[in-house]
Design a protein around this nucleic acid. Structure first.
Length: 877
RNA sequence: GCGGAUGUGGCGAAACCGGUAGACGCAGCGGACUUAAAAUCCGCUUCCCAUGGGAGUGCGGGUUCGAGUCCCGCCAUCCGCACCA
């Protein structure tokens, strides 16, 4: 055995052994694992080029869990695949003129080899890439099923339109309201697109979020609950006689709105509609001067955040609708804050009791009519300035509201709803914040939506037998829109219904479709159906691991997709993920040199010699040529700030085990973590000490007799106590997946064991090494596997991967005498030593007699003595 | 704006049910070994006055024998907001 640790040689050898014996291939119903299956999976990565530290962290958590569970006797499945469709490939294509397909497949090759270099226990036989027709044909197949079941439908959607590049922009391509390439002011544009009816499942999704996911964290459930956002309200109509150009009443003469504050209906002083609303369109037709103003209201991005933060603007249409209860005329405004895709695309305006409406009314001098007052009447209503209580609903009562005066919120809503219902103009309704899932993207690199446009038959689904609609892989996008629109070979087809020449749909699917069900395809990777019986064995997944940034969209879509598959008879379970871990982000320091016009030239931290202020905080640094650099704080590792750390450099320099140990030790799995080069050195140092410890005691351990605890001297009993205490902690932390303290525990074990010098108790060294190597194996599998073998443990306990998990020995943990913390009046003043099995009375007596009690109690007699068994005793005087 | 989270030494952190705050590690300081350095090993290391104390877990209150942990009110930072993945 080598006397010093050479990680590269060790890791290469161990990885060769794993590959040759195919040790991570999972088989359904494998009789070697009586405890049954355990499916642990990481969110599939986007193949962006190279692994980044976030991946290393994610997969190491996954790997530790997988190896730990395997040693516990579970049939573990840990697969891996690639989220291979998406925008970055198109951006890369524009930049370097490489086709997205070629770029993506090369990235996958590199990243896969990096996964292997990290020693991750993936079952590669189940690998998938979502850009493979063998995979995405099932997206298409299921989409057609959804059409059949009425779960997919076509509707207008609002997109970011770049008027210069003549193309649809993603939200991230809109910067400060302008297109990222053209700089043109982005407009909202209405185009048709496909939606999946996730809101049909809103109630079930919400109920299960609240009551059916015991393995999910409270915070994750809360995020999802709020996102689904059930609200009870009233949907009602303002009748009108506004007619379209053909003389027909628009929307049958009823302008619908939804409100959760029907109690304020008597305070309506205007209504606002989206710029795309039929009434707004009609107003534009009637008055061309208005049309351009309405058009201007479409400017700006489509995100909710942007909408909420931007200045509320509007324009009066000169059109009026009728208040359903008072019969008053109410003017219709067009507002830039009303979205046509939300509800009915129209809202009632109650300036007195809604902060947004209040600001809007002040701006345009609209009337403000108070209809709710506080029961206590201590606060006076004034139209001068908004006050928090104006929108409070629970303590308010109706005023200036005719028959509704004096009613409380709930009663008032009931009364208003009943009156509206009697008029046939409205009813109580439960709505959800959750919106249907728009899956159409006007982009090339995605799953083609399998429909065909026929001049005579309209939109016709592609027949099942014609699937897959294969995406041509040779195109290189140039920023002018979807290249499929110019691909005659792709476009030209015949109508499946009438056989006449027709045009193929060029929109592709949102990549969230790809990730909505891939984890089930792993379970039956080569199935000739979407999923097969093997899916019923592995699913639902026992543990899912991924970034917190996916806490809403991806998880909700995957849950919806699962329920939709269930209802089509493809699955037998309701929820895909029994447990969910959201690991934190990896952060690093940011350095830069100032450029012109406030620009910052970011410098990778590795090139900076850091300087500190007198308090020890980082305040800047210098480059090797002496250039001073400024400190920009801590931020998410990323390209822009050039503060990412390449895991490859770490692996090359220190080895995979050190990289893994470091990312696990740096903090709790769910916490964000800040990078530190020197701490990596520390991780390396620890592994080197593990190696040295074993190397120096090879002969002792090989010839070790059975351990006799009673025969150990006091010092070695102490070592054993430390060893088994650390093991107890470590086992506890493995169960709760707090892997940073698992590493701490392993360090404590080694610290204790190093007190057993070579030539001393061989039995204790033997026990210690066997426990330490198994505890450390899931985090540092290469070095431990090698040492396990070299020290001969393999012969007695089998391959480390399948060795039994160690448990603490109660005898080692037993103590004759223990020290209790002594408090006087709740302040710690010392300790009292008592027998481990001392009675309460004996402890009280010992505490009362302690000199600290006399001193700090100033001689007063104890009034009360609180004993916490095994921990402390508090004397109150 | 809405929703969620976080805040503990110079730094990363730990503290399981309300019971010794700072385990474990990094950096730093001192020592051993060395011609010297690196590596390694040993010791110290929350702050303030210092005999012995006192203060201390973002800030201000509260409950309790006892609060990092529970409650109320603030402040700061980070993440998500539906076409980035």
């Amino acid at each position: 055995m080598e006397s010093t640790y050479h990680p590269r040689a060790v890791e290469a050898g161990v990885q060769r052994h794993w590959a040759e014996h195919d040790v991570y291939r999972a088989k359904e119903h494998d009789p070697r694992f009586p405890k049954g299956k355990y499916y642990a999976c990481s969110m599939l990565p986007y193949p962006s080029g190279k692994l980044h530290m976030g991946h290393v962290r994610n997969y190491t958590i996954n790997d530790m869990l997988a190896r730990y569970k395997r040693m516990q006797g579970y049939n573990v499945l840990m697969p891996m695949g690639w989220d291979a469709f998406g925008l970055p490939a198109e951006n890369a294509a524009m930049k370097s003129k490489v086709a997205p397909a070629a770029w993506t497949y090369e990235n996958i090759r590199v990243m896969k080899s990096q996964c292997n270099a990290l020693g991750l226990a993936f079952d590669w036989s189940r690998e998938l890439a979502t850009c493979d027709p063998a995979y995405y044909q099932w997206n298409q197949w299921f989409f057609l099923k959804c059409l059949e079941h009425g779960l997919a439908y076509r509707k207008t959607q609002i997109v970011n339109w770049d008027p210069v590049d003549q193309t649809v922009l993603a939200n991230e391509q809109v910067i400060d309201g302008r297109g990222w390439r053209s700089g043109a002011v982005v407009e909202k544009r209405e185009i048709p697109g496909y939606y999946l009816n996730i809101t049909k499942y809103a109630n079930e999704l919400l109920e299960t979020t609240l009551h059916g996911l015991p393995g999910w964290s409270e915070r994750l459930r809360l995020i999802q609950e709020n996102w689904i956002g059930r609200s009870e309200g009233v949907r009602f109509a303002f009748p009108h006689d506004i007619r379209d150009a053909g003389g027909k009443p628009i929307q049958d003469g009823r302008m619908y709105v939804f409100t959760t504050r029907a109690d304020t209906i008597m305070g309506v002083t205007f209504v606002a509609v989206a710029p795309e609303h039929p009434l707004a369109v009609r107003a534009g037709e009637l008055n061309p001067a208005l049309a351009s103003k309405i058009e201007a209201l479409k400017q700006g991005g489509t995100t909710e955040a942007e909408l909420a933060l931007k200045e509320k603007e509007g324009v009066a249409t000169g059109l009026f609708v009728t208040h359903p209860l008072t019969g008053d005329k109410v003017e219709v405004w067009v507002g830039n804050y009303v979205l046509i895709t939300y509800g009915d695309g129209a809202v009632m305006g109650v300036p007195a009791h809604d902060e947004r409406d209040f600001a809007f009314a002040k701006k345009y001098n609209l009337p403000i009519k108070q209809v709710v007052a506080l029961a206590s009447a201590e606060n006076e209503f004034s139209t001068d300035a908004w006050q928090e209580w104006y929108s409070a609903k629970d303590e308010g009562i109706g005023i200036h509201s005719g028959k509704y005066d004096g009613l409380k919120f709930k009663d008032c809503v009931e009364a208003v709803a009943a009156d509206l219902a009697a008029l046939g103009l409205g009813e109580k309704k439960t709505t959800f914040r959750l919106r249907d899932w728009g899956i159409s993207r006007q982009r090339y690199w995605g799953t083609p939506i399998p429909v065909i446009h026929c001049a005579d038959c309209g939109v016709v689904p592609v027949p099942y037998e014609d699937l897959p609609v294969v995406l041509p892989e040779h195109h290189i996008p140039d920023g002018s829109g979807n290249p499929l629109n110019k691909d005659e070979a792709f476009l030209k087809c015949s109508c499946p219904k009438c056989g006449k020449p027709a045009r193929r749909e060029t929109d592709t699917m949102d990549t969230f479709v790809d990730s909505a069900w891939y984890y089930m395809r792993y379970a039956s990777a080569d199935a000739s159906t979407m999923v097969d019986a093997r899916n019923d064995y592995w699913m639902p997944m026992d543990q899912y691991i991924g970034g917190i940034e996916h806490a809403v969209l991806h998880l909700l879509y995957a849950r919806f997709w699962t329920k939709a598959m269930r209802d089509m008879g493809l699955l037998k379970f309701d929820e895909p993920f029994l447990r969910m871990t959201n690991h934190g982000m990896l952060l690093n320091h940011i350095f830069y040199t100032p450029g012109s016009h406030g620009a910052k030239n970011y410098i990778p931290p590795i090139e900076v010699k850091v300087s500190h202020d007198e308090k020890g905080h980082i305040n800047g640094g210098t480059l090797s040529d002496g250039t001073k650099v400024d400190y920009g704080g801590i931020g998410k590792m990323g390209k822009t700030e050039r503060n990412g750390v390449d895991p490859q450099d770490l692996i090359d320099k220190y080895g995979a085990d050190t990289a893994r140990l470091y990312v696990m030790f740096v903090g709790g799995p769910e916490d964000p973590a800040v990078w530190s080069d020197t701490a990596v050195e520390g991780a390396m140092r620890f592994l080197r000490r593990v190696w040295t410890f074993c190397a120096e005691r090879t002969a002792d351990i090989a010839a070790a007799p059975a351990l006799d605890h009673a025969a150990l001297d006091a010092a070695h009993k102490g070592v054993r106590f430390e060893l088994h205490s650390a093991l107890k902690q470590s086992n506890f932390d493995y169960e709760r997946q707090q892997y940073n303290t698992v590493v701490s525990a392993a360090m404590k074990m080694l610290n204790a064991l190093e007190n057993v010098k070579p030539g001393e108790s061989a039995a204790l060294a033997h026990e210690g090494a066997s426990i330490l190597l198994r505890t450390l194996y899931p985090v540092a599998p290469h070095i431990t596997w090698q040492l396990w073998r070299e020290l001969g443990f393999e012969r007695r306990l089998g391959d480390l991967l399948d060795a039994p998990w160690p448990t603490p020995d109660e005898q080692a943990l037993a103590r004759d005498e223990i020290a209790l913390v002594l408090q006087v009046n709740g302040k710690t003043r010392g300790e009292v030593r008592v027998a481990a099995n001392a009675e309460r009375a004996a402890i009280e007596a010992a505490a009362a007699a302690a000199p600290e009690v006399a001193k700090f109690g100033e001689g007063r007699a104890p009034k009360k003595i609180i004993v916490v068994p095994g921990r402390l005793v508090n004397v109150v005087v």
